[in-house]
């Protein structure tokens, strides 16, 4: 999940004004909320936080993979990875545009990312050490993202829903290209297979953390689900992810790094070990292996790109002035 621990600001149903009740009734009927329509301030704020964090994740998510573009093993793999990373930039833009319809500016969102006021997904604070990590990231990280994004296509906020539909169309390519890398490596030399296993070992638990901690008792989660900006609980999605991923690992001949993993006939799903949540909270707080590096790369890209943005603006102004003069 690219948005984690989003604080939801709602009003309890019994305290709702008639306007808020009417709004909730629209959502219950399955109507989409569009930008210019009335919405509770809490709905607007929560969505800005959620869509913003999601957008930031797409953009920062380019960094761990960008790391391998120049070192991809073949020209084809390089072209594919480049296309995937370019997609992530596109996904970030769809989501920033959706967030902007709620009255926040692109610059404000960037500023909040760069200052650390807004977060991105914990997963991107882990390093990508070998080429097999490109396989594990596509397979597991994009796989986990899809679990969350597919139901969000039905979210109540129109622009968010439309961005999700567009993203989901493209995301399946990402997961498959990752799995294809894993298949090649798992069938390769023993050293290559070890590399694939090592990547799975390192990304398994961070991928499980992507869904966020159990939200059985979370008030925020309840409110977000009533607003249909969160469609499933974190535990539901995590379980679904494990159920789908374990057979895929088996096909590769790789083992999931969890000794307690076992099929549970009764619940028709796997029992599995929880990730280390203290590690998750440390990463969220900024103490993951790559937090500083990621944020620095973002800020540097923004600052060092300033001359280029200014140049484009200057050119646009000059061309506009020339057109005025010619008229």
């Amino acid at each position: 999940m690219y948005a984690q621990m989003i604080k939801s600001e709602g009003t309890k149903r019994e305290d709702m004004s008639p306007q808020e009740l009417a709004f909730q009734a629209r959502i219950d009927r399955g109507e989409k909320i569009e930008p210019k329509e009335w919405m509770p301030e809490g709905y607007r704020k929560t969505l800005i936080r959620q869509i913003g964090q999601h957008a930031h994740s797409e953009i920062v998510g380019q960094l761990p993979e960008g790391n391998w573009i120049t070192r991809a093993p073949t020209l084809e793999r390089k072209a594919i990875l480049l296309a995937k990373v370019q997609d992530e930039a596109g996904h970030g833009l769809y989501l920033y545009s959706a967030a902007e319809t709620l009255g926040v500016s692109r610059d404000e969102l960037f500023e909040k990312l760069h200052s650390g006021a807004m977060k991105y997904s914990s997963i991107f604070n882990y390093p990508t050490l070998t080429w097999a990590d490109m396989g594990a990231v596509g397979w597991l990280v994009d796989g986990a993202a899809i679990m969350n994004q597919v139901p969000l296509q039905r979210t109540s906020y129109g622009p968010y829903s439309r961005a999700m539909i567009r993203i989901c169309k493209e995301e399946s390519f990402h997961q498959r290209q990752g799995y294809s890398i894993m298949m090649t490596m798992a069938k390769g030399t023993p050293a290559q297979k070890d590399m694939a296993q090592d990547a799975l070992n390192r990304f398994w638990y961070p991928a499980l953390m992507m869904f966020g901690p159990s939200d059985k008792d979370s008030v925020h989660s309840e409110q977000s689900m009533a607003w249909k900006i969160k469609m499933n609980t974190n535990d539901e999605l995590r379980q679904k992810f494990v159920n789908e991923t374990v057979p895929q690992a088996e096909y590769l001949g790789l083992s999931v790094p969890d000794e307690t993993l076992a099929w549970n006939e009764e619940k028709q799903g796997y029992d599995f070990a929880e990730p280390d949540w203290s590690e998750f909270f440390e990463v969220i707080k900024g103490n993951g292996p790559c937090n500083r590096e990621r944020l620095e790369a973002r800020v540097t890209a923004w600052d060092e790109g300033a001359w280029f943005r200014e140049g484009l603006s200057a050119h646009a102004e000059k061309a506009a002035a020339a057109r005025m003069a010619a008229e």
């Binding site: 833009l93 484009l312 061309a319």
Partner: peptide
């Protein structure tokens, strides 16, 4: 299909090509 930021119409078309017609 959506929206984007650009300094002028020409760049808007270039960016739209990259953002909305990659496939």
């Amino acid at each position: 299909v959506g929206s984007l930021h650009a300094p002028d119409a020409e760049m808007a078309i270039n960016n739209a090509r990259d953002v909305y017609t990659r496939r």
